[in-house]
């Protein structure tokens, strides 16, 4: 089975977020870039399927700027992906999910794929648009928020569950298929030191922007014309309720919630 995993670098959860003066970008200092959480699960699931289906291979692909994109691709190789493709995105270009999907479609033309795996959404922008937009461009079915993804070789079908808002659906589908993963069978593995060292020397296939842009024609500019970040006013810390007895604490809190916060009548 030929498996492609879409991966994205995102700031790790403890990174300090500080927009620059115009708000157009986050200050790079204080940000540690890591593989997005759901993408980690997607890589894990790809590697589990590879181990379960003899003759499979896994290629990870990412569209993003230097140097972080190359770093997360190497991290994915260290986890066990066989090959990696980096489509270079010019620094400072607004992140446009449809542009990203179109770029990935061009990159995918080069590689056979029975299954495309992605995280159900990115850990930073949480948009969740790229997988389904890409599936539409490729003309394949897609399912998001997927857990328990299995391959049934005799029937040549994938079986999995989609976790929706109020329940879940069981799905059976043939490839090629695009899956937005919520959870792999296992917690994502961590890379071993020898594999990390080896991944530093691994070949990363590069697709420069100057090669991709002409393929996109009018779409190369994207549809998002500007992107700015702002921080919410800092939370000042909780107002603590004074009380003598649990009943008094309850009474005071309920009064505040009704009269001041107005969260229920």
């Amino acid at each position: 089975m030929e498996i492609v995993v879409l991966v994205k670098p995102v700031p790790d959860a403890e990174s300090r977020l500080r927009p620059n003066a115009g708000g157009t970008e986050l200050d790079g200092e204080g940000i540690k870039w890591v593989l997005s959480g759901y993408d980690e699960s997607a890589v894990e699931q790809a590697l589990l399927l590879k181990a379960a289906v003899p003759g499979s291979s896994v290629r990870c692909i990412s569209f993003g700027p230097a140097p972080r994109t190359e770093e997360v691709l190497r991290a994915s190789v260290a986890l066990g992906c066989d090959r990696a493709t980096w489509v270079e995105r010019p620094v400072g270009m607004p992140a446009d999910p449809l542009l990203c999907a179109r770029v990935l479609r061009e990159a995918l033309r080069k590689y056979p794929h029975d299954l495309i795996l992605a995280g159900k959404q990115a850990g930073d922008d949480e948009e969740g648009i790229v997988p389904s937009a890409l599936a539409e461009l490729l003309g394949v079915e897609s399912f998001g928020s997927v857990v328990d993804l299995r391959w049934h070789a005799e029937e040549k079908r994938f079986r999995f569950q989609c976790v929706l808002d109020s329940g879940s659906e069981k799905v059976e589908a043939a490839g090629p298929l695009l899956i937005g993963l919520q959870q792999a069978w296992n917690d994502p593995r961590t890379a071993t030191l020898p594999n990390i060292l080896r991944s530093r020397k691994a070949t990363i296939d590069r697709l420069p922007w100057s090669d991709v842009a002409p393929l996109l024609g009018a779409f190369s500019a994207g549809r998002t014309t500007s992107q700015r970040f702002r921080l919410p006013p800092p939370r000042t810390g909780a107002r603590l309720i004074d009380y003598q007895s649990p009943e008094e604490a309850a009474e005071k809190l309920v009064k505040i919630l009704r009269e001041e916060a107005k969260v229920f009548p």
Binding site: P11, A13, L17, P19, G23, L26, P94, G123, D124, D125, E126, R223, T224, T225, S226, Q227, R228, F229, R230, L231, P232
Partner: peptide
């Protein structure tokens, strides 16, 4: 974005 730690403002064409 970032789990509510920041807000992103986008102009959609």
């Amino acid at each position: 974005v970032f789990g509510g730690r920041a807000t992103e403002e986008l102009d959609l064409g």
